[in-house]
């Protein structure tokens, strides 16, 4: 896979016309997001679209306009020690089209991303959870505080360099 941050490419360049045609046959509405997609993956009948982190709000708005009206959740995957370290996976559902897409943004450590609470207020708790357990800051979030761990907790438990047991 090409690195989406350093080498933006069209879905066709990444995965070949056939894979993209298959994905589009199933998910025609994602053409509304075409301007923001830097990478795409059609795997196990699930469509994963990578967007640049600075475009996340615009991409979410475009997805909303394309019919993906329901925000399911956002979570992160820590690919430590690889760079970019964090993969944010936004899961979006369309009630009308009866399908879901995964929008992915990749971040380095210390990099922040704009909150999508302006598009879907339901992202509020989920972004707080990612902030709490992974330490990814969301700018523009109305109440970015820890949600699971105590306020005075040090560290972010779901990071891969945080041990499962024993001392930190």
């Amino acid at each position: 896979m090409t690195d989406p941050i350093t080498n933006p490419a069209t879905p066709e360049a990444c995965f070949g016309k056939e894979a993209v045609a298959l994905a589009l046959a199933d998910h025609a509405a994602v053409q509304g997001l075409a301007d923001y997609i830097v990478d795409a993956k059609w795997d196990r009948k699930e469509l994963t679209l990578t967007v640049a982190p600075e475009n996340i709000v615009a991409a979410c708005k475009a997805a909303q306009g394309a019919g993906y009206n329901f925000f399911e959740d956002v979570t992160a995957v820590d690919w430590y020690p690889a760079e970019p370290r964090f993969q944010l996976s936004y899961s979006l559902l369309s009630h009308k089209l009866k399908q879901r897409i995964r929008v992915v943004a990749r971040l380095n450590e210390g990099q922040s991303i704009v909150s999508i609470t302006a598009v879907w207020p339901s992202a509020n708790f989920y972004e707080r959870e990612v902030f709490d357990l992974f330490g990814v800051p969301f700018t523009g979030h109305p109440n970015l505080t820890r949600i699971m761990m105590p306020e005075n907790w040090e560290g972010h438990p779901l990071r891969k360099d945080y041990p499962v047991e024993g001392y930190r």
């Binding site: 949600i147 699971m148 761990m149 105590p150 438990p157 779901l158 499962v164």
Partner: peptide
């Protein structure tokens, strides 16, 4: 205010 039952199942 939640988190009183947080047991870190995802981490485990």
């Amino acid at each position: 205010d939640i988190g009183y039952l947080h047991t870190g199942i995802e981490k485990t």
